[in-house]
């Protein structure tokens, strides 16, 4: 099956589920119109959702994603406390700057989730991404690494913890 067709099929199933969640499923008219509209939506915009080949079983990926999600929540709580400490400290011990980070992830969605995780963790924020060189530019409120330009060290501090789990999910 071609990728676009598979993507359309997935969009069709997802739209039908969303429609049934929004409406009362007992009524046959809702079900009929919902299926019709899901078909229409998958024809209009179904080609965008999936762009790469399937690699692993879906169930394993969802499990890995749950693991990643718990880890992400934990990191977020830790970062929140750190930023709160910085804000409440009378001396304001910050050292802001923009650092470069390398990533090994290849898929677009994996990169996007990585960038969004970095942005959602307080203290770090994704500024830009260079898809060709797999580099992410991050604004960091408190740079703890000794050398700004040392990409490996920055990567180990900021994104390595997410990247290992994301590799399990997507690659």
């Amino acid at each position: 099956m071609k990728i676009k067709t598979r993507s359309r099929l997935v969009v069709f199933i997802l739209s039908a589920f969303v429609w049934f969640a929004l409406t009362n499923m007992k009524n046959w008219q809702e079900v009929f119109v919902g299926l019709l509209l899901s078909l229409l939506v998958s024809l209009i915009a179904g080609q965008f959702l999936i762009t790469t080949e399937k690699t692993k079983h879906l169930f394993l990926r969802i499990l890995a994603f749950a693991k990643y999600f718990l880890r992400f929540i934990w990191e977020m709580i830790k970062a929140n406390f750190h930023v709160a400490y910085i804000v409440l400290h009378p001396d304001l011990p910050i050292k802001p700057g923009i650092v470069k980070v390398k990533t090994k992830l290849t898929k677009d969605s994996a990169k996007t989730i990585l960038c969004n995780s970095i942005t959602l963790t307080p203290g770090t924020m994704t500024v830009d991404i260079n898809p060709d060189k797999n580099e992410i530019y991050i604004h960091w409120i408190d740079i703890v690494t000794k050398d700004y330009y040392n990409i490996d060290e920055n990567t180990a501090t900021i994104s390595a913890k997410f990247e290992k789990l994301l590799t399990e999910v997507f690659e």
């Binding site: 969009v11 997802l14 739209s15 969303v18 429609w19 929004l22 409406t23 509209l37 899901s38 229409l40 939506v41 998958s42 209009i44 915009a45 179904g46 965008f48 959702l49 762009t51 677009d108 969605s109 990169k111 996007t112 960038c115 969004n116 994704t126 991404i129 898809p131």
Partner: peptide, 20 residues
Amino acid sequence: LIVKTVTRISVWLIILYGFY
């Protein structure tokens, strides 16, 4: 890339909601 990917993933949902 981030904006593109998020748009790619969410556009069908917005259109479906419009139809709803």
